[in-house]
């Protein structure tokens, strides 16, 4: 059970790292690639603080092995630059302590891409995957909806 060398596609770059097969992707991203945007909150798939995008879908990186990510397109919060949802989080005060924020933003980002016309039901279904302990969620709802509105044609 020696360590394995694997190649990952992360934030548009090709990165080669050495991991144990049992290392989670979260552990590899933080420990091997220095990407500390994804946060450990429970390591149990419950809180969503470690959420990233894998092939465009949200993924709790504590629930995925690093070796499972080979051949997939991984995007962490560090891979987003001045996106509408990040700007909306700033404007709407949709963060306080900021710890859940990278995970929340990655989930919102994927939601906006997969469902540019998301209704309340879909927004709820997606966003209940993350816990924010500071805000009231209303701020996050406003942030997501402000981007949805802007992306509507003529909106």
């Amino acid at each position: 059970m020696a360590s394995k060398t694997i190649t990952l596609h992360v934030n548009g770059e090709v990165r080669t790292i050495t991991v144990r097969a049992s290392d989670t992707l979260l552990f590899a991203l933080r420990g091997k690639l220095g990407l500390t945007g994804p946060k450990p909150g429970c390591l149990n798939g419950d809180c969503g603080a470690c959420t990233i995008n894998v092939d465009g879908w949200p993924m709790k990186s504590c629930l995925m092995l690093a070796v499972e990510a080979v051949g997939k397109e991984v995007v962490t919060i560090e891979g987003l630059h001045d996106t509408p949802i990040q700007r909306a989080f700033v404007e709407e005060f949709a963060f306080q302590c900021g710890y859940c924020t990278p995970g929340f933003i990655m989930n919102c980002h994927s939601l906006l891409k997969q469902h540019p016309d998301a209704d309340d039901r879909i927004i709820k279904e997606w966003l209940e995957s993350n816990i924010c302990r500071c805000t009231s969620y209303i701020e996050i709802e406003k942030a997501v909806k402000s981007v949805l509105r802007k992306e509507e044609p003529g909106g």
Partner: peptide, 10 residues
């Protein structure tokens, strides 16, 4: 602290 918190740099 907004910029660093929404970019994962915090």
């Amino acid at each position: 602290d907004a910029a660093e918190k929404v970019t994962g740099r915090a």
